[in-house]
Design a protein around this nucleic acid. Sequence first.
DNA 1: TATGAATGAGAGTTCATTCAT
DNA 2: TATGAATGAACTCTCATTCAT
Lengths: 224, 224, 224, 224
Amino acid sequence: MNNSHVRRATNEDQKIARRQAILDGARQLFVEADYFDVSMAIIAKRSGLAKGTVYLYFKTKEEIFLSLSTEELENWLSAFETRLREQVRPLENTEFVDILRDTFMGRHLMQRLVSLLHLVLEKNITYEEAFAFKLNLKTRMNRLSKLVEQVLPFLAEGQGFSLLSMLHCLVVGSGQMSDPSPVLKQVLEHPEMEPFRVDLEKDIFDTFSFLLEGMKSVSENQSC
Amino acid sequence: MNNSHVRRATNEDQKIARRQAILDGARQLFVEADYFDVSMAIIAKRSGLAKGTVYLYFKTKEEIFLSLSTEELENWLSAFETRLREQVRPLENTEFVDILRDTFMGRHLMQRLVSLLHLVLEKNITYEEAFAFKLNLKTRMNRLSKLVEQVLPFLAEGQGFSLLSMLHCLVVGSGQMSDPSPVLKQVLEHPEMEPFRVDLEKDIFDTFSFLLEGMKSVSENQSC
Amino acid sequence: MNNSHVRRATNEDQKIARRQAILDGARQLFVEADYFDVSMAIIAKRSGLAKGTVYLYFKTKEEIFLSLSTEELENWLSAFETRLREQVRPLENTEFVDILRDTFMGRHLMQRLVSLLHLVLEKNITYEEAFAFKLNLKTRMNRLSKLVEQVLPFLAEGQGFSLLSMLHCLVVGSGQMSDPSPVLKQVLEHPEMEPFRVDLEKDIFDTFSFLLEGMKSVSENQSC
Amino acid sequence: MNNSHVRRATNEDQKIARRQAILDGARQLFVEADYFDVSMAIIAKRSGLAKGTVYLYFKTKEEIFLSLSTEELENWLSAFETRLREQVRPLENTEFVDILRDTFMGRHLMQRLVSLLHLVLEKNITYEEAFAFKLNLKTRMNRLSKLVEQVLPFLAEGQGFSLLSMLHCLVVGSGQMSDPSPVLKQVLEHPEMEPFRVDLEKDIFDTFSFLLEGMKSVSENQSC
DNA sequence: TATGAATGAGAGTTCATTCAT
DNA sequence: TATGAATGAACTCTCATTCAT
């Protein structure tokens, strides 16, 4: 496949680029197949490196997928945060959900990775890695929570974080269903299966809209 | 040593009992360990059979866990249905959620299995198995939806099914987080991780309450 | 190599035979090559089994070589014990050494395995395995020590065991030198290397003879 | 970060010093761990050089350990030779052994390296290296043999060399046993294992004493 | 001379599944 | 029907060595 020798990553930038190349290879493969079918061997092959080289950049397969998840998650968090920062005034629930929907567009991979996180963090991960991941996530979520509480004034303090947690939960839950295996896809094409065929991305946002509406409604009733 | 073969299951009842023994063995083991640590070898040992015998009753490991999931799911669906049928009048949202919470009590295993379903249905399952599972689920959910729509009159037709889907989604999402790996458990004990340490069972029902409140509120506004 | 399926080892005898076949395969290979070149893969191939099958009989590569060592060691111990039991009267040192030499004949493999023991017991061995090996060795050596003390009356109580330990030490030490690698063999053929080319089997027995002579001489002087 | 390259060794002295630094690093590490756990990577790190640089000074890992062995062996040979040269008159066996014991003190590393030699010389060593090592050893041993024959007059010509060979053999044999792996150490702590727990350094010298005594006794009887 | 990124063969091991008995 | 020995592909990961820089 590649007779030509791989150009060596000599400086820090090149090393970062190489690391990125591995992540990108893994990402591609994960788009095409499921987690278990993405072996270290094919990640190496895809990124044009030897197996051992991949291990220079990532200690384990889990570390690759944790990094990938972090990357995709941060990407989305940034996009969402940016969109929220553009808002100077309180938002209607529908406006909020529209923004959310926008930022979710084309982030199917992120959804799948987030659904996978549990599995990945279950095995072969050190305390330090898990801790770093979670801490980073907390920091990002805290910042975002503040913003959310600003644009949705009916939220009490702390409810921003809760809302994001619920969202996370919804993403995981719907993420599992939104990428069926080939066999399942076939099953869902059967006319009898129509009720299960609903667009699950749509479902997340419908659910989330109701959720917001409910929180708002409860908050208004409490203030009476 | 080899003389102690298990008495053969000759009639249908005995075969059903044996099948059940395997499922019960697998269930026990899954309570103690995670999916990947429950091997066919120990399922066989636990149910007092030989490895080959297990394969007479289940074609694959996935089939066992699919059956187990069906069983647990049906159990819960029945319990919930029974409780709803006892109600002759419309319920308050809080009453509905209380019933839901009641039926969830002690069904931690079901939650974990439902979270696993995606993984299990992804691999090594035939069209027929997947179809049968889904069809059965649809039938049960349809029946339940009707009931739900009866006790929650603000729901439009079809919203009962949606509500159950959302619930499913919440269960999956929170199910993943509610059984962390040993390492993750340790991480969560750190003071910094307090925000992630919320009781996730509680969260499901809080979220679900808001959801219901939102649906009700929307429905009321529409009818004006 | 073997299209024909392997006949299954159904009863205990056949299983013992299969275990033996694996050991024999490993033994053959160890005769032809050194420890590190004898991989589990070729042991399996040589004994006409799949790699996984070998692992049904031995948990690790180390267990194979520990078993092999035990086997060879016991073989020699038995042979030596038998020869000593035939003696009804005290032996001259030279007679004793002659018997020893006889029983060592053709046991080159045993010498190499004993030299390897340290390496094998160093890694990947459980406490239980190591303990069982050592305990067995102790029992055998104790019994043999008694005999040795009988046929060599100048030995004080306990000196039989010491003598066997010294012998063990000599066997290990000379065992290392007696199977040079191909390169070393070539080096030793050089005329300059003549002093190193001495027959090391001979050396063991010369050394051992002096040792016995020394012990006898010391014992006689003490009794004066 | 990459600027902190090590200052280049331009003249011969510096190169010798660098070579020595590598050997010293390896020595330190070998004291702390066993041969297989001492990787080229950590030798490089310990000696403050890059992996590639180590290979400028030593072609293989084996060459490092062969050099180390040579160094330690020569050290001891020198010490022993010096001590013997101080003697103007024939020595009693016990005096000889006392000197031997003195020079062995604190040379545990040498013992372990000598025990390793077989392994190291077995693999990955060129004819030239092996030859050079052996030739050097022969020269040193020849010189020492002469001395030994002088201080122990009962030795016939050539027996000095034999005696040293026997000593070598004893050192190797006992060297293996004197540094048990952690597991083996634990096993030996068991009360049942008492007989194997003898102090092996003591054993070498006891054995060697008997050996000398035997040689002396035989020589005296022959001269009658 | 010095670097350290890249190599890649090969290691031991696991386990769902098959099939001769 | 029941067994469990046999399978073998697949797995992750290591490390002495090379060589472009």
